[in-house]
Design a protein around this nucleic acid. Structure first.
Lengths: 133, 133
DNA sequence: TCATTGTGGATTATTTTTATCTTATTTATC
DNA sequence: GATAAATAAGATAAAAATAATCCACAATGA
């Protein structure tokens, strides 16, 4: 029922990138040192963020990572979903899964409602908002 | 970010008990067969529910399990917390954990808000409500 | 006394998560 | 073109969490 450590790494990484002057590339090594995240693991995590179009990467010397769009257009739900896949409180609410009883199942309905409420709040503030406060 | 299978077992068990005529004891074996849950694992799960005062157990022949209080006074948050411990979206929000930055950390604040919203919905309907619909 | 049921603890198996390592590929710079 | 710095990709290992099983024990109703 918790976000993974990898999601937390991803969030800290995205905040670090959001603080960088716009367009500036930060290397995985630099971020890993600043945020105390294992470098290789961070690279993998950055790849997930890139596949979700949250960051853009650039190879070669003076390469690195930057946000793919302005920090006011990225929220926690985006980041967690990029790392963990679609957010679902139970398997029966995951995209591919189709439980025959889903529509009538009261448990499913309640979990779905809780999930929606959570998602709404995870989408409330952008990275930019979080840096302001 | 999902509830565990054990929590799901616990929810199904509690619904089964809520359907039983009040005061009736159901054996772990009976529930495990009806709900297709491994018997020994279910017994452990029932123990967790008993420790949380959600069910009462009785040994001996014709022993079994029943709800510890009326079904309209038990909700999904109770059950999940009984099995998984206090619900926390991130370690930094768990009871024992104290992060020095917690108060000012914008991530923590947002996760806490999402967690509260989710909990509110998990507490909305009781077992009795769920059986009605 | 005996069969039935939960208790408790140990152990194993499986899955998920986290971390590491190695070899490629890209690319700026000299 | 050579070189060095960076990401890409995939294999593997290590650790942790979850799920399942097993067994000896204690309670209790018949």
């Amino acid at each position: 029922m918790q976000i993974t450590r990898q999601s937390e790494y991803a969030i800290r990484t995205m905040l670090e990138l959001a603080q960088a002057t716009s367009g500036e590339l930060l290397s995985a090594r630099y971020i890993s040192e600043r945020q105390d995240i294992p470098e290789d693991f961070l690279k993998k995590t950055v790849k997930l963020l890139a596949m979700a179009d949250l960051v853009v990467t650039q190879r070669g010397p003076s390469g690195g990572v930057r946000l793919a769009r302005p920090a006011d257009q990225i929220n926690l739900a985006d980041i967690i979903a990029a790392v963990e896949g679609p957010i679902a409180l139970n398997q029966c609410l995951s995209p591919g899964y189709d439980c025959p009883n889903q529509l009538t199942c009261p448990v499913s309905r309640n979990l779905a409602r809780a999930q929606q409420a959570m998602l709404k709040e995870l989408r409330r503030e952008s990275l930019a908002d979080m840096l302001k406060h």
